[in-house]
């Protein structure tokens, strides 16, 4: 896959180091898909990805796309300039993925203001493309 530079106007982001274990997650956005590793034996979604299913210990695991829907589990409005990044203040959130009770993701909420954050609100995934990585962010569900 050819590497594309970060598009103009996007914030600086520290990117993940891609490995055979995590590449499906960080590149699924190229196809518009939020992907998690899923056990092909028992159906459990595994996040962060591991080589063995934590529930049934099967090694038959494969990335699968989920719907991209989520609900807001909790969040913070960050005002501190820790490092170069999105314009302050920005929202860091933990979202709950509806496909499985314990499937959660730390992410940023975008296309909304901090005042609009309500725990439980419906969200949908959107991706921000940097180099060889598509970062899954969430915005209010349309």
């Amino acid at each position: 896959m050819p590497e594309a530079a970060t598009e103009p106007g996007l914030p600086f982001r520290i990117l993940p180091r891609l490995t055979d274990r995590n590449r499906h997650f960080w590149t699924g956005g190229e196809a518009g898909e939020l992907r998690f590793l899923r056990c092909q034996s028992c159906g459990y979604y595994i996040h962060p990805p591991t080589p063995v299913c934590p529930r049934c210990h099967s090694k038959e695991l494969a990335p699968e796309a989920v719907s991209g829907r989520a609900t807001l589990f909790t969040y913070t409005v960050n005002h501190q300039n820790w490092m170069p990044g999105p314009e302050l203040p920005y929202i860091v959130a933990i979202v709950a993925i509806p496909e499985q009770d314990d499937l959660r993701l730390t992410t940023n909420l975008v296309e909304m203001s901090p005042e609009e954050c309500v725990i439980g609100m419906p969200l949908e995934v959107t991706f921000e493309h940097h180099e060889d990585v598509w970062i899954p962010l969430f915005r209010p569900a349309q």
Binding site: P11, R13, I14, L15, P16, R17, N22, P48, N78, W82, M83, G85, P86, Y90, V92, T106, T107, N108, V133, I135, L137
Partner: peptide
């Protein structure tokens, strides 16, 4: 890996 890309260091 699961926090830095979201400016959550």
């Amino acid at each position: 890996e699961w926090t830095m890309p979201f400016a959550a260091p």
